[in-house]
Structures are given as C-alpha cells and as structure tokens.
C-alpha cells in the first residue's frame, strides 16, 4: 500500500511541468524513504532525476516498494482538474493497475477523486557516477532561465566557460554573437567555486527545457567538469531535487 499526501497541488504541478517536456512516460519508484524517478529523453542526450524524500510529504506511507508507471500527459490532465491550493493524496494498492489521486479544497468542502491507469513500462536504471565537479556555480534560477532564452536567439550551441573570474555563456550564429558573463556577487546571489577552469559546449534547446523547473527553486546549481555531462540541479525545498544531466557536444 502506498499513500502520500501533499498540502498543495501546486508543487506537484510544477514538478510534472519540469519533467513532461523531456519525458512522455516514466516510472515513479516509491519506497519507505521516498519517491525517486530517473529517465533519459528519447535521444539519450539528457537525463532527469527526481528525488522527493518522505519528509517532503504531509503524510507518507509505503509498506512495500512499488513502481508506478505514469503517462505524464494524462497526469497533467488530472492535475489541471485541481486548484493549486488543494491538498492532494496519491494512493496505490500493492500490484495495482491504477493510481488514485484525491484533491481536497483548502476549506475541505470539496473533494474530487480521479483514477489513472498505470503503465507497465520497461525502464532501464542507470548508475550515475559520483562526480567531482571542477566548477560549481549557484545562481538565481530566473537568471539562468533568462540566459538560456537569450542564448537560444543566437545559436543552437551554447558554450559555458567557467573560471575564477566568472561563468561565461556564449553563442554565435548567422545573426551574430552573444556573450553573457556573471561574476561572483558579494551578496551571494551568484557563487562560483573553481578548482580548474572548464569550457564545454552544449545544445541550447536542452538547457531551455531544463529551465521548466524554474518555478520550483530560487537557486539553481550548475556543475561542470571536463568531458562529463553538465549537471543542472534545482532543489525542492530541503527535501529533494530535480537534477538534469546533459551530455556535451564535442568537436569532430
């Protein structure tokens, strides 16, 4: 038996919004410690990993590990039926072929229950190696979203170069070139830790997809190391995260 209750549907809506542009379907792995999910996009260039610890939920019960194969489009449709400030309870019986979502209005005067058919997804699990990133940058999530949007105007590829002087995003194409550089701020909105400078090239459209998670977090963490996938991490309060990994582009 699995049961998890969140005080607000809004965060769940935001989490699904952050996933659904990369994935159509995905399996939530629920255990007594919380919920995890990881999947690559169809082209195997990016990976998204979600972790929500049980402390994130108002109520959490999971007697036995259970995997819930979900169609994210269908889940979005159900979430559209709810108000952001409704409480939501997700329930599934052991070996169930459906999941139940119940919404309760803030004043408790309205309840609505929906059933979603579960999918039997054959999903492979990947081992994500622990990586020591040579450069770790924290910046406001809205700033990162803005930079990705502005870079997309100029080119498909974005070069991210990080050194002690700052982090620089560059794009150049037929129209011209764009360079945006952020330095560390004394107030701590932007922090930059660098062991060794790194410069890597990435497909901008994936970066833009990651910024779908912007409403979830104030700050985004970016991890860079030579010849390994970029890490873009959005914390979910103190109880979890959405991490995106993106493989670099290399010169022929």
């Amino acid at each position: 038996m699995f049961e998890a209750r969140l005080a607000s549907t809004l965060t769940l809506k935001r989490i699904v919004d952050a996933l659904r542009e990369i994935l159509n379907q995905s399996t939530l792995d629920c255990s007594d410690t919380g919920i995890q999910m990881q999947a690559m996009d169809n082209s195997h260039v990016s990976l998204v990993s979600l972790c929500l610890r049980k402390e994130y939920f108002e109520k959490y019960k999971c007697n036995r590990n259970i995997s819930l194969g979900l169609d994210l489009k269908s889940l979005t449709k159900v979430l559209k039926c709810a108000n952001g400030d409704d409480a939501v309870t997700i329930k599934a019986a052991d070996k169930a072929d459906k999941v139940e979502l119940s919404f309760e209005s803030a004043g408790k005067e309205r309840t609505a229950d929906y059933e979603l058919r579960l999918l039997n997804l054959d999903q492979e699990h990947l081992a994500i190696p622990e990586t020591e990133y040579n450069c770790v940058v924290h910046m406001p999530a809205t700033e990162f979203a803005r930079i990705c949007r502005d870079m997309a105007t100029f080119s498909e590829s974005v070069v991210i170069a990080c050194s002690k002087e700052g982090i620089k995003f560059s794009a150049s194409g037929e129209m011209g070139a764009a360079n945006i550089k952020l330095s560390e701020t004394t107030k701590g909105e932007v922090s930059i830790q660098v062991d060794e400078p790194v410069a890597l090239s990435f497909a901008g459209r994936y970066l833009s997809t990651f910024t779908r998670a912007t409403p979830l977090a104030e700050k985004v963490k970016i991890g860079l190391a030579p010849d390994v996938p970029l890490l873009v991490e959005y914390p979910i309060e103190d109880y979890g995260y959405i991490r995106y990994y993106l493989a670099p582009k290399v010169d022929d």
Binding site: S43, H44, E124, L126, P229, A247, D251
Partner: peptide
C-alpha cells in the same frame, strides 16, 4: 562541426 555525445557512454545500465 560538433557532434552531440550520448549519455550512454557516461551512465551505465544497472
């Protein structure tokens, strides 16, 4: 020209 690397070479199937 640049080539897009795939993630499969970094993250191994468990």
């Amino acid at each position: 020209a640049q080539t897009q690397v795939r993630l499969d070479s970094f993250f191994k199937t468990m």
